[in-house]
Lab assay of single mutants.
Amino acid sequence: MGFKLLSKLLVYLTASIMAIASPLAFSVDSSGEYPTVSEIPVGEVRLYQIADGVWSHIATQSFDGAVYPSNGLIVRDGDELLLIDTAWGAKNTAALLAEIEKQIGLPVTRAVSTHFHDDRVGGVDVLRAAGVATYASPSTRRLAEVEGNEIPTHSLEGLSSSGDAVRFGPVELFYPGAAHSTDNLIVYVPSASVLYGGCAIYELSRTSAGNVADADLAEWPTSIERIQQHYPEAQFVIPGHGLPGGLDLLKHTTNVVKAHTNRSVVE
Protein backbone atom coordinates (compact mmCIF):
# COMPACT_ATOMS: atom_id res chain seq x y z
CA MET A 1 0.00 0.00 0.00
CA GLY A 2 1.47 3.42 -1.01
CA PHE A 3 2.09 6.05 1.66
CA LYS A 4 -0.34 8.52 0.10
CA LEU A 5 -3.11 5.92 0.07
CA LEU A 6 -2.29 4.92 3.64
CA SER A 7 -2.41 8.55 4.80
CA LYS A 8 -5.80 9.06 3.21
CA LEU A 9 -7.06 5.82 4.75
CA LEU A 10 -5.94 7.02 8.20
CA VAL A 11 -7.87 10.27 7.72
CA TYR A 12 -10.97 8.32 6.70
CA LEU A 13 -10.70 5.94 9.65
CA THR A 14 -10.19 8.81 12.08
CA ALA A 15 -13.27 10.57 10.77
CA SER A 16 -15.29 7.34 10.91
CA ILE A 17 -14.31 6.68 14.52
CA MET A 18 -15.27 10.23 15.48
CA ALA A 19 -18.62 9.92 13.78
CA ILE A 20 -19.39 6.74 15.73
CA ALA A 21 -18.12 8.12 19.02
CA SER A 22 -20.09 11.37 18.72
CA PRO A 23 -23.01 10.90 16.34
CA LEU A 24 -24.79 14.09 17.34
CA ALA A 25 -21.79 16.38 16.97
CA PHE A 26 -20.24 14.93 13.85
CA SER A 27 -21.54 14.83 10.33
CA VAL A 28 -18.35 14.05 8.43
CA ASP A 29 -18.44 14.89 4.75
CA SER A 30 -18.82 11.68 2.76
CA SER A 31 -18.13 13.35 -0.58
CA GLY A 32 -14.51 12.22 -0.75
CA GLU A 33 -11.02 12.20 0.69
CA TYR A 34 -9.17 15.15 2.16
CA PRO A 35 -7.83 17.27 -0.73
CA THR A 36 -4.09 17.02 -1.37
CA VAL A 37 -1.63 19.45 -2.92
CA SER A 38 -1.68 17.70 -6.30
CA GLU A 39 -5.44 18.17 -6.57
CA ILE A 40 -5.59 21.93 -5.98
CA PRO A 41 -4.16 24.34 -8.58
CA VAL A 42 -2.59 27.49 -7.16
CA GLY A 43 -5.31 30.14 -7.03
CA GLU A 44 -8.08 27.69 -6.22
CA VAL A 45 -9.46 26.63 -2.84
CA ARG A 46 -11.20 23.50 -1.60
CA LEU A 47 -13.52 23.15 1.39
CA TYR A 48 -13.75 19.94 3.41
CA GLN A 49 -16.54 19.45 5.93
CA ILE A 50 -15.21 17.91 9.13
CA ALA A 51 -18.32 18.18 11.28
CA ASP A 52 -21.68 19.90 11.39
CA GLY A 53 -20.82 23.57 10.98
CA VAL A 54 -17.05 22.98 10.79
CA TRP A 55 -14.95 22.99 7.63
CA SER A 56 -11.30 23.20 6.75
CA HIS A 57 -10.21 25.29 3.79
CA ILE A 58 -7.28 24.11 1.73
CA ALA A 59 -5.25 26.19 -0.72
CA THR A 60 -1.86 25.84 -2.40
CA GLN A 61 0.94 28.30 -3.01
CA SER A 62 4.22 28.32 -4.94
CA PHE A 63 7.28 28.94 -2.80
CA ASP A 64 10.95 28.49 -3.72
CA GLY A 65 10.08 26.48 -6.81
CA ALA A 66 7.71 24.05 -5.09
CA VAL A 67 3.98 23.98 -4.40
CA TYR A 68 2.73 23.57 -0.84
CA PRO A 69 -0.73 23.06 0.66
CA SER A 70 -2.07 25.24 3.46
CA ASN A 71 -5.00 24.64 5.79
CA GLY A 72 -7.38 26.96 7.59
CA LEU A 73 -10.68 26.59 9.42
CA ILE A 74 -14.27 27.78 9.01
CA VAL A 75 -16.74 27.54 11.91
CA ARG A 76 -20.42 28.39 11.83
CA ASP A 77 -21.50 30.97 14.40
CA GLY A 78 -25.28 31.18 14.20
CA ASP A 79 -26.13 32.65 10.81
CA GLU A 80 -22.55 33.81 10.28
CA LEU A 81 -19.14 32.25 9.78
CA LEU A 82 -15.87 32.64 11.66
CA LEU A 83 -12.77 32.21 9.50
CA ILE A 84 -9.48 31.02 10.92
CA ASP A 85 -6.50 32.10 8.80
CA THR A 86 -6.38 33.40 5.26
CA ALA A 87 -5.76 31.18 2.25
CA TRP A 88 -2.15 32.40 1.80
CA GLY A 89 -2.37 35.43 -0.45
CA ALA A 90 -4.88 37.85 -1.94
CA LYS A 91 -5.85 35.71 -4.94
CA ASN A 92 -6.37 32.59 -2.84
CA THR A 93 -8.31 34.46 -0.17
CA ALA A 94 -10.64 36.00 -2.75
CA ALA A 95 -11.18 32.50 -4.14
CA LEU A 96 -11.86 31.28 -0.59
CA LEU A 97 -14.62 33.84 -0.05
CA ALA A 98 -16.17 32.91 -3.39
CA GLU A 99 -16.05 29.20 -2.54
CA ILE A 100 -17.63 29.81 0.86
CA GLU A 101 -20.45 31.78 -0.76
CA LYS A 102 -20.97 29.00 -3.31
CA GLN A 103 -20.87 26.02 -0.95
CA ILE A 104 -22.05 27.36 2.41
CA GLY A 105 -23.95 30.53 1.57
CA LEU A 106 -23.38 32.29 4.89
CA PRO A 107 -21.39 35.50 5.39
CA VAL A 108 -17.90 35.52 6.88
CA THR A 109 -18.07 38.29 9.48
CA ARG A 110 -14.91 37.71 11.54
CA ALA A 111 -11.49 36.24 10.87
CA VAL A 112 -8.61 35.31 13.17
CA SER A 113 -4.99 34.97 12.04
CA THR A 114 -3.05 32.49 14.17
CA HIS A 115 0.41 33.97 13.57
CA PHE A 116 2.19 36.64 11.56
CA HIS A 117 3.51 34.68 8.57
CA ASP A 118 2.08 35.30 5.12
CA ASP A 119 0.28 31.95 4.98
CA ARG A 120 -1.90 33.22 7.87
CA VAL A 121 -2.23 36.96 7.18
CA GLY A 122 -1.70 37.15 3.41
CA GLY A 123 -5.15 38.14 2.17
CA VAL A 124 -6.24 40.11 5.25
CA ASP A 125 -6.69 43.19 3.05
CA VAL A 126 -9.09 41.20 0.84
CA LEU A 127 -11.08 40.19 3.91
CA ARG A 128 -11.17 43.76 5.19
CA ALA A 129 -12.40 45.03 1.81
CA ALA A 130 -15.17 42.43 1.94
CA GLY A 131 -16.36 43.78 5.30
CA VAL A 132 -14.81 41.05 7.43
CA ALA A 133 -13.52 42.13 10.86
CA THR A 134 -9.97 40.80 11.14
CA TYR A 135 -8.36 39.83 14.45
CA ALA A 136 -4.99 38.70 15.78
CA SER A 137 -3.07 38.88 19.02
CA PRO A 138 -1.12 42.10 19.72
CA SER A 139 2.07 40.09 19.22
CA THR A 140 0.94 38.87 15.80
CA ARG A 141 -0.07 42.37 14.73
CA ARG A 142 3.28 43.78 15.84
CA LEU A 143 5.33 41.03 14.18
CA ALA A 144 3.32 41.30 10.96
CA GLU A 145 4.09 45.02 10.83
CA VAL A 146 7.80 44.40 11.39
CA GLU A 147 7.79 41.74 8.66
CA GLY A 148 5.96 44.01 6.23
CA ASN A 149 2.99 41.63 6.07
CA GLU A 150 -0.70 42.53 6.12
CA ILE A 151 -1.93 43.48 9.59
CA PRO A 152 -5.28 42.36 11.06
CA THR A 153 -7.28 45.32 12.36
CA HIS A 154 -8.35 44.22 15.83
CA SER A 155 -6.33 42.92 18.79
CA LEU A 156 -7.21 39.76 20.71
CA GLU A 157 -6.59 40.37 24.39
CA GLY A 158 -5.86 37.81 27.10
CA LEU A 159 -3.42 35.68 25.10
CA SER A 160 -0.05 37.05 26.17
CA SER A 161 1.14 34.29 28.55
CA SER A 162 1.74 30.60 27.87
CA GLY A 163 -1.40 28.64 28.71
CA ASP A 164 -3.80 31.57 28.22
CA ALA A 165 -7.16 30.72 26.64
CA VAL A 166 -10.10 32.92 25.63
CA ARG A 167 -13.49 32.15 24.15
CA PHE A 168 -14.12 33.74 20.77
CA GLY A 169 -17.60 32.96 19.50
CA PRO A 170 -17.87 29.22 18.74
CA VAL A 171 -14.17 28.50 19.38
CA GLU A 172 -11.56 28.73 22.08
CA LEU A 173 -8.27 30.42 21.26
CA PHE A 174 -5.23 29.08 23.11
CA TYR A 175 -1.69 30.37 23.36
CA PRO A 176 0.53 27.37 24.16
CA GLY A 177 3.78 29.31 24.17
CA ALA A 178 6.41 29.74 21.49
CA ALA A 179 6.74 26.99 18.89
CA HIS A 180 6.79 27.50 15.09
CA SER A 181 6.72 31.19 15.97
CA THR A 182 6.59 33.10 19.22
CA ASP A 183 2.99 34.19 18.61
CA ASN A 184 1.33 31.01 17.27
CA LEU A 185 -2.22 30.36 18.48
CA ILE A 186 -4.20 27.11 18.63
CA VAL A 187 -7.93 27.00 17.89
CA TYR A 188 -10.33 24.49 19.43
CA VAL A 189 -13.95 23.84 18.45
CA PRO A 190 -15.49 22.32 21.61
CA SER A 191 -18.79 21.38 19.96
CA ALA A 192 -16.96 19.06 17.56
CA SER A 193 -13.69 18.16 19.37
CA VAL A 194 -11.73 19.67 16.47
CA LEU A 195 -8.26 21.05 17.20
CA TYR A 196 -6.66 23.37 14.66
CA GLY A 197 -2.95 23.41 15.38
CA GLY A 198 -1.84 25.73 12.62
CA CYS A 199 1.86 25.69 11.82
CA ALA A 200 2.76 24.60 15.35
CA ILE A 201 1.63 21.08 14.37
CA TYR A 202 2.99 18.92 11.53
CA GLU A 203 1.24 16.33 9.40
CA LEU A 204 2.37 12.72 9.90
CA SER A 205 4.20 12.51 6.57
CA ARG A 206 6.48 15.40 7.44
CA THR A 207 9.95 14.36 8.53
CA SER A 208 11.82 17.68 8.45
CA ALA A 209 11.27 20.82 10.48
CA GLY A 210 11.02 23.09 7.45
CA ASN A 211 10.92 26.84 8.06
CA VAL A 212 12.14 27.39 11.61
CA ALA A 213 13.59 30.87 11.11
CA ASP A 214 11.17 32.34 13.65
CA ALA A 215 10.77 29.22 15.80
CA ASP A 216 11.70 28.60 19.41
CA LEU A 217 13.02 25.05 19.07
CA ALA A 218 13.80 24.70 22.77
CA GLU A 219 10.30 25.73 23.88
CA TRP A 220 8.32 24.02 21.11
CA PRO A 221 8.03 20.56 22.77
CA THR A 222 6.85 22.17 26.03
CA SER A 223 4.24 24.18 24.14
CA ILE A 224 2.95 20.99 22.53
CA GLU A 225 2.69 19.41 25.98
CA ARG A 226 0.47 22.31 27.01
CA ILE A 227 -1.78 21.67 24.02
CA GLN A 228 -2.04 17.98 24.91
CA GLN A 229 -2.84 18.77 28.53
CA HIS A 230 -5.42 21.43 27.66
CA TYR A 231 -7.25 19.43 24.97
CA PRO A 232 -6.91 15.71 25.77
CA GLU A 233 -10.40 15.14 24.37
CA ALA A 234 -9.55 16.45 20.89
CA GLN A 235 -10.42 13.90 18.21
CA PHE A 236 -9.62 15.58 14.88
CA VAL A 237 -6.37 17.55 14.59
CA ILE A 238 -5.63 19.84 11.64
CA PRO A 239 -2.00 20.85 10.97
CA GLY A 240 -1.10 24.08 9.24
CA HIS A 241 -0.06 22.18 6.13
CA GLY A 242 -1.05 18.73 4.90
CA LEU A 243 -3.33 15.95 6.03
CA PRO A 244 -5.21 15.99 9.36
CA GLY A 245 -5.26 13.17 11.88
CA GLY A 246 -5.56 12.62 15.63
CA LEU A 247 -3.59 13.62 18.69
CA ASP A 248 -0.71 11.51 17.40
CA LEU A 249 0.22 14.53 15.28
CA LEU A 250 1.33 16.28 18.47
CA LYS A 251 3.79 13.57 19.44
CA HIS A 252 5.01 13.33 15.85
CA THR A 253 5.68 17.07 15.75
CA THR A 254 7.66 16.88 18.98
CA ASN A 255 9.76 14.04 17.56
CA VAL A 256 10.52 15.98 14.36
CA VAL A 257 11.44 19.13 16.27
CA LYS A 258 13.69 17.25 18.71
CA ALA A 259 15.40 15.39 15.86
CA HIS A 260 16.08 18.68 14.11
CA THR A 261 17.45 20.21 17.30
CA ASN A 262 19.71 17.22 17.93
CA ARG A 263 21.08 17.34 14.38
CA SER A 264 21.76 21.06 14.74
CA VAL A 265 23.71 20.46 17.96
CA VAL A 266 25.81 17.72 16.33
CA GLU A 267 26.53 19.86 13.28
Score class of each variant (00 low, 15 high):
1 M>A: 02
1 M>E: 04
1 M>D: 00
4 K>L: 05
4 K>Q: 07
4 K>G: 04
5 L>V: 15
5 L>N: 15
6 L>K: 15
6 L>V: 15
7 S>C: 14
13 L>E: 07
15 A>L: 13
15 A>I: 14
16 S>N: 07
17 I>H: 07
18 M>E: 13
18 M>N: 15
19 A>Q: 15
20 I>M: 12
21 A>T: 14
22 S>D: 12
24 L>M: 15
26 F>S: 13
30 S>I: 10
31 S>Y: 12
32 G>D: 10
32 G>H: 11
34 Y>H: 09
35 P>Y: 08
37 V>Y: 15
39 E>C: 07
40 I>A: 07
41 P>H: 12
41 P>M: 13
42 V>N: 14
48 Y>T: 09
50 I>R: 02
54 V>T: 07
54 V>S: 03
54 V>N: 03
54 V>A: 06
56 S>R: 15
57 H>E: 00
57 H>Y: 07
58 I>F: 07
60 T>K: 09
60 T>Q: 12
60 T>N: 10
65 G>M: 08
66 A>S: 13
66 A>P: 06
66 A>C: 07
67 V>Y: 15
67 V>K: 15
68 Y>H: 10
69 P>I: 15
71 N>V: 02
72 G>V: 02
73 L>N: 01
77 D>G: 08
79 D>K: 09
79 D>Y: 09
80 E>V: 09
82 L>G: 01
84 I>W: 00
85 D>R: 00
85 D>S: 00
86 T>L: 01
86 T>E: 00
86 T>R: 02
87 A>T: 04
88 W>P: 00
88 W>M: 03
89 G>N: 05
90 A>C: 04
91 K>I: 13
93 T>H: 05
93 T>A: 03
93 T>Y: 00
93 T>M: 02
94 A>N: 13
95 A>D: 07
95 A>Y: 15
95 A>F: 15
97 L>C: 00
97 L>V: 03
98 A>D: 11
99 E>R: 13
100 I>W: 02
101 E>L: 08
106 L>G: 05
107 P>I: 08
107 P>A: 10
108 V>E: 03
109 T>W: 06
111 A>E: 13
111 A>R: 03
112 V>R: 04
113 S>I: 05
115 H>T: 01
115 H>A: 00
117 H>S: 00
119 D>I: 02
120 R>V: 01
120 R>P: 01
122 G>L: 05
123 G>T: 03
123 G>C: 05
124 V>H: 05
125 D>Q: 09
126 V>A: 08
127 L>W: 00
127 L>S: 00
127 L>F: 06
129 A>H: 11
129 A>N: 15
129 A>S: 11
131 G>I: 06
131 G>A: 07
132 V>C: 02
134 T>L: 01
134 T>R: 01
134 T>W: 01
136 A>H: 04
137 S>E: 01
138 P>T: 08
139 S>P: 09
140 T>N: 04
142 R>G: 10
142 R>P: 03
143 L>H: 06
143 L>A: 07
144 A>T: 07
144 A>V: 07
147 E>K: 14
149 N>S: 12
149 N>P: 04
149 N>Q: 10
153 T>C: 05
153 T>L: 11
154 H>V: 07
154 H>I: 09
155 S>K: 11
155 S>V: 14
157 E>P: 11
157 E>F: 11
158 G>F: 06
158 G>P: 06
158 G>N: 10
159 L>C: 03
160 S>A: 14
161 S>N: 12
161 S>Q: 14
162 S>F: 11
162 S>W: 09
163 G>M: 04
164 D>N: 14
164 D>Y: 07
164 D>K: 09
167 R>K: 12
169 G>Y: 05
169 G>M: 03
169 G>P: 06
171 V>C: 02
171 V>P: 02
171 V>A: 06
171 V>S: 01
172 E>Y: 05
172 E>F: 03
174 F>I: 05
177 G>N: 02
177 G>K: 02
178 A>H: 10
179 A>T: 08
180 H>C: 01
180 H>M: 02
182 T>A: 13
183 D>Q: 01
184 N>T: 02
185 L>Y: 00
185 L>H: 02
185 L>T: 02
186 I>E: 00
187 V>S: 00
187 V>N: 03
189 V>I: 10
189 V>W: 01
190 P>Q: 08
192 A>G: 10
193 S>G: 13
195 L>R: 00
195 L>G: 00
195 L>Y: 04
196 Y>I: 02
196 Y>D: 03
196 Y>A: 00
197 G>A: 08
197 G>C: 05
197 G>L: 01
197 G>V: 03
198 G>S: 07
198 G>T: 05
198 G>Y: 05
199 C>R: 03
199 C>M: 01
200 A>Y: 04
201 I>N: 06
202 Y>P: 05
202 Y>G: 05
202 Y>E: 04
204 L>Y: 09
204 L>C: 06
205 S>T: 10
206 R>S: 15
209 A>R: 09
209 A>L: 08
209 A>T: 09
211 N>G: 10
212 V>G: 08
212 V>Y: 06
213 A>R: 11
213 A>L: 12
214 D>T: 06
214 D>S: 08
214 D>N: 09
214 D>L: 06
215 A>Y: 05
215 A>K: 05
218 A>R: 12
219 E>K: 08
219 E>D: 07
219 E>V: 07
219 E>P: 03
220 W>Q: 02
220 W>G: 00
221 P>D: 06
221 P>S: 10
222 T>R: 12
222 T>S: 13
223 S>K: 01
224 I>G: 01
227 I>H: 02
228 Q>W: 11
228 Q>K: 14
229 Q>C: 03
233 E>R: 13
234 A>N: 03
234 A>H: 03
237 V>P: 01
239 P>K: 01
239 P>V: 01
242 G>S: 05
242 G>E: 05
243 L>H: 15
247 L>W: 15
248 D>C: 06
248 D>A: 11
248 D>Y: 09
249 L>M: 07
249 L>V: 03
249 L>F: 06
250 L>Y: 05
250 L>T: 01
251 K>T: 13
253 T>E: 00
254 T>C: 07
255 N>Y: 12
255 N>M: 10
259 A>D: 12
259 A>H: 09
260 H>G: 12
261 T>A: 12
261 T>D: 12
261 T>V: 14
262 N>D: 13
264 S>Q: 14
264 S>A: 12
265 V>M: 11
